[in-house]
Write a protein that binds this DNA or RNA. Sequence first.
DNA 1: TAGCACATGTAATAAGTTACATGATTTT
DNA 2: AAAATCATGTAACTTATTACATGTGCTA
Lengths: 209, 209
Amino acid sequence: MDKDEARTSTAEALLGVLSLRSMSGYQIRLQIEESIGNFWRESYGQIYPTLKRLLGEGLVRMESAGGGRAESKVYSLTEAGRERLVEWIGTPSTRQVPRNEVLLKLFFGGLVAIEVVREQIGAFRRLHEGELRRLTEMEEDLTRRRGRDARLPFWLMTLRYGVAESRAMVAWADEVLVTCEELERTRSEAELAIAPVDPRCRVRMPKTC
Amino acid sequence: MDKDEARTSTAEALLGVLSLRSMSGYQIRLQIEESIGNFWRESYGQIYPTLKRLLGEGLVRMESAGGGRAESKVYSLTEAGRERLVEWIGTPSTRQVPRNEVLLKLFFGGLVAIEVVREQIGAFRRLHEGELRRLTEMEEDLTRRRGRDARLPFWLMTLRYGVAESRAMVAWADEVLVTCEELERTRSEAELAIAPVDPRCRVRMPKTC
DNA sequence: TAGCACATGTAATAAGTTACATGATTTT
DNA sequence: AAAATCATGTAACTTATTACATGTGCTA
């Protein structure tokens, strides 16, 4: 259990979006949402303090602007900031195990009726089907609107990631649903083996059965 | 931006592993690692306080045991605990966007030399290739050792998730690597278009070129 | 004039990791 | 005797979200 200077990449995410264009903290949030929002989120509670820190480190520069609706502080990337960003992109990425609630429930699925599991996985499947549609639309939309931008290929590749993932998840869910059916069949067979062959007998069984 | 009682499922994860067998806090950690460790982690800093809370809520029961190497507290699931667990399994799961550092770097990949991107994605590919091998081994091992357990299908399905995911990630990485090659080709063509047609001229160019 | 979009910022809260303190027993 | 394993627990710290306070200027 080492510490190893883990740190998260909030600062680098901000430097990244500022490499697209100069922005206020408010705009950074919107920009994050609509560009890297599929795999990265930042809240104001992170953005404003981080911008202050980056300013202190000389990685961004700030200029007050009153032109818009409200008084705003427009941040831009400095040369040092750009260098930091470029350096970070080349740095090995660490991946930590992300928690997965659906898998946690599935793992203990033996404790509940099989329909409960099926419903859970069904919802998961629908979610990823929706994602698939949404991402495909984004792909088309982005290509239409930013066809000339030299950075488009990189943006599309991140979208393709989501597509690949959701496709795999839909396929996996289908596999699980088949297994659920098999389990149900096995269960009712086991039930039949215990229960009397004549179905009429079941009706006459007492409640404790 | 609503709160909506988000809560995480640390407590339920503990109830879940306690449904496998009664355990001490220490053993819970080991058990988590080797059963749901592919998609769920807990640290002692979470486990011990949560156990205390669950005990207070009557969801687990505790018995001191001195039989082992050291004095230990063995926790078991109560009926209420089991009910809570079962109820939770049927509850709709929420998914929040998990941060993805590799995608963040790829998104801003236009800022660096293409080899840097390729190295980053190459490492990602190797990681998932390794995962694929590891998970497949786990699958075989688990089937061999727990072939009779009625819960095995559920355990295998969570493993299949990882397999499906890593397979998709390897395929995606290959797709990205191909795109990188294309980008490189396009770049050198653009370079050629600017540079004189006769390659001998390049050698005679001054450094500033 | 009410409400919305733009805008900055912080305090409270939550969740979680890491590192440490402590100690018994077993293995090498 | 040293090292590893089993075991409990907490304090410090980090990270992040949420909710709120505050205010401007445009639009319906």
